[in-house]
Each structure stands twice: as C-alpha cells, then as structure tokens.
C-alpha cells in the first residue's frame, strides 16, 4: 500500500472521529486536539475567524497551575520574586459566591475583547486587535505609558519594569513596554494551540478549549451554542473571546 492510501485511511478515521463530536458535544470534550489547519505563512490573519477560549471551571482545580507554568516557559517569562511588579500573562484566581459559599478556581488572562478598552485608550496605536480577534501590543510602537493597564477591567496586562535577557527567539519581549496574553499568536498562526491549553490537557484537568468561535463546526462554537457560558463583566459589553462555563 502506498503512503498516500495510508494517509487517506487515516484522514477518514479522523473524519469519523470528528463526527462523534458533532453527535454528542460535551461527552467527548477533550478527546480530539482542535488544532486548526495552519494559515499559509504569506497570508494575513482574516476576520472570517475569531479565536476564542472556553474554560470549564467545573474541571479547574485550586491546586493546579499547569497553565501558568506552561505560559511562563513558552513565553520566557521569569520574575524577580517581586509579585507586585513581575510581569504575568495568566494567573489563577479563586472566586467565592458570598451567599452560597460556592468557590471556583479559574485562570484569568487577556479576555481578547471584540471592543477592547485598551485599544480605545492607547495614544500611539500600539494596542490593537488583529483581524482574527487577538488583542495585541505592538511593542515597536508602545511607549510604556500604561493607559491600557488602567483601562483593562481584568488587570490582564503587565509592564516590563526590568531588563529582560535570554528571550526565546519566537517571543521577543523587553523593558519599558506593556505586554499580556497574546494567545501564543505564533503557535496559533502555525496551526497549534496556546501553551496553556496544551498543558491543561496533558498536565492539568483538561479544562481549557481553544478554537474558532466563528466556525459553526468547531468544538468551541458548538459548546457555546449548547451550554450556558459566561463572559466576565458582560455588563461592560466588551464581547470577550474568553468564555467561562460553570460560574
């Protein structure tokens, strides 16, 4: 049998597996990596896609920080043991319902708003939303004024106070500019998953799902259509790309 025939067989199998997902969304939630087909390198990001993240807070546990450590490794973020000023792209927070006493643990990061307040206030245009919904800082234009940090209701951005050395070539970052979760934009452009999602699946509790909210066939779109999901501070009308389930 030629390699080609082999591949075809594999593809059919994958297709069949995907069909299971559409028949019973939720049941097979974390079974198939939702890696999108990579966009050709010379093609710009397009508004036909909108990247989103769904966090299942019923699976996320207080003791687990797999997403946070994966983010730090992937993006070369190291601190100086000074939590007040050390940069942070994702953090774990605990929610407690005052009346019922119910607690939830969840990861908190840039919510990739469709109407991002950080972009509204940026005086240089460094803060911007890419066509596919990822909210970024163009650090070539950032002057470090930190208006965006004040405007963000999620405290999602950090200022780099100190010189950075030993950056990863894929993730340039340095002193005097603001940074935040970029959904691992280089990995996503290559058809991969954000590091937190990958690590949550393999080292954590499989509580994070990444995908294209605009693609009705994607697992994330199916889930937000089927189940009640929450946008944090939905009252602000920011239309976040990160959604939570179970809070």
């Amino acid at each position: 049998m030629s390699n080609k025939a082999c591949d075809a067989g594999r593809r059919d199998f994958l297709k069949a597996a995907a069909a299971v997902v559409t028949l019973a969304p939720g049941v097979t939630l974390m079974s198939i990596p939702a890696a999108a087909a990579p966009r050709p390198a010379d093609q710009p990001a397009s508004a036909t896609q909108r990247w989103g993240l769904l966090v299942d807070t019923t699976r996320c546990t207080t003791d687990c920080t797999a997403c946070v450590s994966a983010c730090r490794t992937e993006n070369g973020i190291s601190g100086h043991g000074r939590p007040a000023t050390d940069p942070q792209w994702i953090r774990k927070i605990e929610l407690r319902n005052e009346t019922t006493g119910a607690t939830h643990s969840l990861p908190m990061m840039c919510q990739h708003c469709a109407n991002p307040p950080c972009v509204d206030v940026c005086p240089t245009g460094a803060s911007f939303k890419r066509a596919d919904g990822i909210v970024l800082v163009d650090r070539h234009t950032c002057i470090g004024c930190r208006y965006c940090m004040m405007a963000c209701p999620y405290k999602a951005r950090s200022f780099v106070h100190e010189d950075v050395e030993d950056q990863r070539p894929d993730v340039p970052r340095g002193v005097g500019t603001v940074e935040g979760c970029n959904l691992c934009v280089a990995r996503v452009d290559a058809g991969g998953l954000p590091a937190c999602v990958e690590s949550c699946r393999s080292n954590g509790n499989g509580a994070m799902l990444f995908g294209d909210l605009n693609d009705p066939k994607s697992e994330i779109a199916q889930r937000v259509k089927t189940y009640a999901t929450t946008q944090l501070r939905a009252d602000l009308g920011l239309d976040t790309g990160v959604r939570y389930q179970g809070i």
Binding site: T73, R168, P169, P172, R173, V175, G176, T177, S199
Partner: peptide, 17 residues
C-alpha cells in the same frame, strides 16, 4: 535586542515543559 533574541534558538530548550 532589548526584546529580540540575538542568538538562534537553542534546540530542546523548551523540553522542560
């Protein structure tokens, strides 16, 4: 080079993850 790495990626540097 305040931000960009001035040396090529070291293979396997991320293996720790």
């Amino acid at each position: 080079f305040q931000c960009h790495a001035s040396t090529p990626e070291v293979p396997g540097r991320q293996a720790a993850r």
